[in-house]
Design a binder for these strands. Structure first.
Lengths: 338, 338
DNA sequence: TTGTAGGCGTTATCAG
DNA sequence: CTGATAACGCCTACAA
C-alpha cells in the first residue's frame, strides 16, 4: 500500500496542498464546507501527516534532553538520573538515557545519535571519551554539561564534586581512626574520578608520613562483582591491611560480601569505607561508612545549567559547579584508638 | 547554536553539496584529496547529517530501538536492560532508554517521542498504559514487544514469566515450611504483574485451606523505601504473621531493613521471601530467599522477537514467550517444621 | 478564502 | 571526478 500524502488529499478534494495543510493544522480562514469536505476525505483515507517531514520544516527540536551514562546498573548513575529527570520535568522536558558500559566507542556513538535526533541538549557522564571530542561539542556551542569529569584546556559546563579532596579527607578519617595499613580499591585509571580519588588517597598517606605501597593499590571493575573479586587479592597480601578504602560503594560492598563469605567480620576484622553513598549502603545489613556525593542534586544542577545555556543564547558563560561531599559515619569502620 | 548543514560544509570546502554528500556516504569516485579536505572540515566542525532530513528522503528509520521502563532505579529493569543492550549490540543497534516512574502519561509521551524519531522498534515495560493504546501500535504494525505485561483482546508480542503460577508456587513453598500466617506485600493493583502475583498468593492459600485475610494484603510503593514503610504496618497487625511474602525484592529488602532496625532477626522472628532475584538479594548480608526471573534472558528474548518482526515483514506472526521461574533458597525463610 | 512558490537538509540522477 | 537539479512531504509567506 502506497503511503498517502497531503498531495493525494489535495488531488482527491480538488483543493490545493496548502488548503489541506491549513485544515490539518486547524487554521482559521477556511470555508466551513471545504474544511468539512477535506476532513471527511482525511478520515476515510486514514491519512496521517508525516512527522518527519513536518519536523524537517519546523526545525522542531524535540523537547528531549539526552543523558549518557557509563553504567545504569550503578545506583550512583540511577540516582543522578532521577535528579535530572525531576528537574527536567519541571521544564516539560523528557529524558532519553543511553548506557555505554564504560566503552569509549559507545560514548561517541550515542553523542552522535543524540545530535542527529536534535535533542535540546545533553548531559554527559562519559568518562572515557577524548577531551577533544568534548571540545568540538563545546566549540559548536551544543548545549551540554559534563558530570563527574573534567576536560583539560576547554571550558565546559560541569557539575561534580572534588574527588581529590574528598578522598583525601576520607583517607585521613581512616588514619585518624588509627589505621596505618590501608588498601585502596580503585578502578580504571583513565577515568578522571578514579584517578583523582587515587591521588587523594596517596596525598593523605603522604601527609601522615605513611608509605604509599603499590601492592596496596588494587584495581577492579566498578561493580559489586569487581569488589568481590578484588577482595581475594587483599587477602593474599603478605602484610594484611586493617582498612579498605574503596573508590566506590559497589566495590566496597562487593569486597564486604567476599569477606562475609569467608567468615570475616566487619569492622572487627577489616574496616571498610566506600564512596558515593548509594541508597543500598544505608541498609542496616550493609551499614557502610562512606563519602556522600549529592547525586540527586548533581542531576538537578546539571539540568539547571543546561537550560541556562539553552535559554541564554550567546551571552551564556560556562559554569563549573562543585558540590561539597560529606563523610557518612556508619558501622563499617573500627576505631583502633579505643 | 547555529545548526550546521551540508551547505555550510560545501561553502567552507569550496565544493558542492553533492560532492560533500558523496563523501559523507563514502561513495567512490571522489578524489582522495578532496575527500580528505571535506572530511577534516566535517570533523573540525562536528557536522552531523540531519537524520530527519535524511530519513525524509530515504524513508528510513534510525538504527535505534527504544526501551521504556517504569523505574530504572529498580535493578530488575536495569538487568533486563542489560540483556536488551547486549543482544541489540549484536545487531549493531543502539538502545535509548526512557523512564516513566510508573506514570501512565509518561508512558504515552515516550511512545510518541520514539515513534516521532522513527526508531526501528520498541520494547515496552509500560504497565500502566491503556490496552487500547498498545492495540493501536499493534494495528499499525509498529514493531514492538511487551515486557512483563499482557494486553487483553490484542495479540501483541510479549515476553514475561507466569506471575500467577510462580507466586502460587512461592506461597506454597512458605506453607510447606509450616507457615500459616503469611502477609503479602504488593504494589499498585493496576499493574498486571502485581495483580497476578496477588492472585497467585491467594490461590495458594485457598488451595491449602488457609483464609485470605484482607489485612494481610498490604500495598506499598515498589521500592526499598516502600517496603520499609509498609513493614511498620505488618508490626501493627493484631495477629502477627510468621512470614512475609513480597511481590518484589526491593519491597522485601526494605521490609527486612525496617525489621533489622527494630531489633528483629530474620528468619528467626520473621521469614521473608522476595520476587525477582536481583543481584543485591544474593549478598551474604541480605541473603534473601526469592523467586528468580531470568532478567537478562528476558531482555535478550525481547530483542530477538523484535527483530523477527522487523525482518519478517508481513508474514511475521505474534510471539508470546514465557520463561520459567525458580525459587532460590537462601537464608531468609525459617522451616517451622523442625 | 484559496493557491503559488519557495524552502527545510538530504539523497540521487545525470550531465559536464 | 564534480555539480546542477529534482525529489522527499510538509509548512508558510505572499499573491490572487
Amino acid at each position: 500500500m502506497e503511503k498517502i500524502t497531503i498531495r493525494d488529499i489535495a488531488k482527491i478534494s480538488g483543493f490545493s496542498k496548502s488548503t489541506v495543510s491549513k485544515v490539518i493544522r486547524n487554521e482559521p480562514y477556511v470555508k466551513k464546507s471545504t474544511k468539512e469536505k477535506i476532513l471527511s476525505i482525511i478520515r476515510s483515507t486514514r491519512y496521517q501527516a508525516d512527522e518527519i517531514a513536518r519536523s524537517l520544516v519546523l526545525k522542531k527540536t524535540i523537547d528531549v534532553i539526552g543523558l549518557i551514562v557509563s553504567d545504569i546498573t550503578n545506583p550512583f548513575f540511577a540516582e543522578v538520573a532521577l535528579g535530572i529527570e525531576a528537574e527536567a520535568k519541571k521544564r516539560n522536558c523528557n529524558i532519553i538515557l543511553c548506557n555505554t558500559n564504560y566503552i569509549e566507542d559507545e560514548e561517541r556513538k550515542y553523542i552522535d545519535i543524540l545530535i542527529k535526533n536534535r535533542v535540546l541538549g545533553m548531559i554527559l557522564a562519559t568518562p572515557k571519551i577524548d577531551d577533544k571530542y568534548i571540545k568540538s561539542l563545546v566549540d559548536i556551542k551544543y548545549p551540554c554539561v559534563l558530570i563527574a569529569r573534567k576536560v583539560n584546556n576547554v571550558r565546559a559546563n560541569r557539575v561534580s564534586v572534588n574527588y581529590y579532596e574528598s578522598m583525601k579527607e576520607g583517607t585521613n578519617y581512616l588514619i585518624k581512626k588509627g589505621h596505618k595499613k590501608i588498601v585502596h580499591l580503585t578502578s580504571d585509571k583513565k577515568i578522571f574520578g578514579f584517578a583523582s580519588r587515587l591521588e587523594g588517597y596517596k596525598a593523605a598517606l603522604k601527609q601522615n608520613n605513611l608509605k604509599v605501597i603499590n601492592n596496596y593499590i588494587l584495581k577492579s571493575e566498578a561493580s559489586i562483582k569487581g569488589g568481590y573479586e578484588i577482595a581475594k587479592e587483599v587477602l593474599k597480601l603478605e602484610e594484611r591491611p586493617t582498612a579498605i578504602c574503596a573508590a566506590d560503594d559497589l566495590i566496597a560492598i562487593g569486597a564486604m560480601d567476599f569477606l562475609f563469605h569467608n567468615g570475616y567480620k566487619i569492622p572487627d576484622d577489616f574496616s571498610i569505607m566506600g564512596y558515593d553513598n548509594i541508597a543500598m549502603s544505608s541498609l542496616k545489613a550493609i551499614n557502610l561508612t562512606t563519602i556522600n556525593q549529592p547525586k540527586f542534586e548533581i542531576g538537578k544542577k546539571a539540568i539547571e545549567i543546561l537550560f541556562q545555556q539553552i535559554n541564554g543564547g550567546s551571552n551564556f558563560k560556562v559554569i563549573e559547579y562543585l558540590f561539597p561531599t560529606k563523610i557518612i559515619e556508619r558501622g563499617s569502620v573500627l576505631d583502633l584508638n579505643i
